[in-house]
Amino acid sequence: MAQGLPGVTERTDPPAAAAARPVVRVRGLTRRFGERAVLDGADLDIDRGEFVALLGRSGSGKSTLLRALAGLDRDTGGELSVDGTVAVAFQEPRLVPWKRVRANVTLGLRGPDPRAAADRALAEVGLTERGDAWPLTLSGGEAQRASLARALVREPDLLLLDEPFSALDALTRITMHRLVSDLWERHRPGILLVTHDVDEALLLADRVLVLDGGAIAHESRVGLDRPRRRDHPDLTALRAALLAQLGVTPEEGTA
């Protein structure tokens, strides 16, 4: 693998070689809370620019895995390497309430013109008008988009999304799916999207994983072109398989 090549810097890599080196490589990751091993030998690769969705029952350790990848949890065992820059959007937007929206986006941002970069990112998520607003005055969807802008403006190699849409209403969620899909097409970060929503995973991701028993228990590739239709026949079969993995019958899942 390209990882082992000596003297190869990112700049001189031919694109093919760069693409061959995954942005995330996890082997045998474990994490215990007391006696309980929440992660127990999990393996995970994410290629550059790959969109991966992670499903799993509540309490299966999805957030734990994501936090480890974000570098927020150092008490893990096993091998974990992230090659490149990381940005995170959490389930709650976690905007800093005493900084205006634009200042939230530029927070910690280095570079020649952070303000212009922030305005570009805000425009991309449709928040041009709200740059001077206080976070507490934003609606839930606006706050979530601001949080996305704050992550995107860093042009990460890996974007970690922990159920970022679960608190939003169904309509806003559809808009956000389209937004994330567009942003991913444009910037091509590797994405790990943690979600409860099987349809969300199938609409957006190249690959859908199920975390169970502390490791990746199931993997489905979704080879369909985007934008995808919810009612595409190929998705129906995938959906049933994934729901079965999650311990739900398709009838329950679509009800």
């Binding site: 570098g71 940005a87 959490f90 976690r94 927070l107 910690g108 704050r150």
Partner: peptide, 11 residues
Amino acid sequence: RLAEVADVLRL
């Protein structure tokens, strides 16, 4: 949770 934000933003 805001301290975690500071962490991931490399403040």
